[in-house]
Design a binder for these strands. Sequence first.
DNA 1: AATGGCCCCAACCGCCGTTTC
DNA 2: AGAAACGGCGGTTGGGGCCAT
Length: 240
Amino acid sequence: MESKKQETLVRGPWHEEEDERLVKFVTLLGERRWDSLATVSGLKRSGKSCRLRWMNYLNPKLKHGPMSSEEVRIILQLHALWGNKWSKIARRLPGRTDNEIKNYWRTHFRKKEEAQNCDKIIDWRGNKGEELFHKYKETEIMRTKVTSQEHGFDETVKESNQRTMESGQETNGGICETESFGIMNSPYENRISDWISEISTDQSEANVSEGSSSENNINNASWWFQETRDFEEFSCSLWS
DNA sequence: AATGGCCCCAACCGCCGTTTC
DNA sequence: AGAAACGGCGGTTGGGGCCAT
């Protein structure tokens, strides 16, 4: 039974229609119970796969674009503090995913660290690579002093930023300011927004236009949907 | 123009902790 | 209380695209 279910699952890259459908159902049902969502949506994907696609790509809160030097600085500092705790680091970088940060780190820093044994880094982006990496190593040393993780992070970064300011180097004064990063208004985000507005303005159309299986899926969804929360609440939790 | 190597990143895997029944 | 389902996490892989030759 389980193996038969596995056989029918689609794997590999997502197609546009799948993305649209996933966005539609996440908007409707919320970011939870991914297995149920996968079943109900009619997507031949595992719940895990749906969750991953949403979390790493489709979520409109995500930024899509190159890392800013400020983000890179934060990644370096936090990696020095926490090591490969990508999800933890990602929580400090609104709009960035653990996967993205992990990939970024591996691409830009891991080899350099290995190759140069932490002593020096080439100017990887034609701007403050060496300075950033120096700060990273500084912070890494400071990590050894940290006893409480959460407390340690806050205090260490404050100290680090304080020192940076005192030495007259450029800073924005702290990690909290990443909250103010703007979401890039890419064509991609516009498309997502379009899909979402389509959903919220014409949900009934989905029942009619998407064929009988989808109709059943949406009908199946409604009972579960009503059991949990109303649409307003979902909207708030998702998009605010 | 062909091709081989490298880089980047989306997606998958396996494990583990948490939640639900 | 315990089993099953679910969700989160870090590591790994595979393929597409770019670039040098």
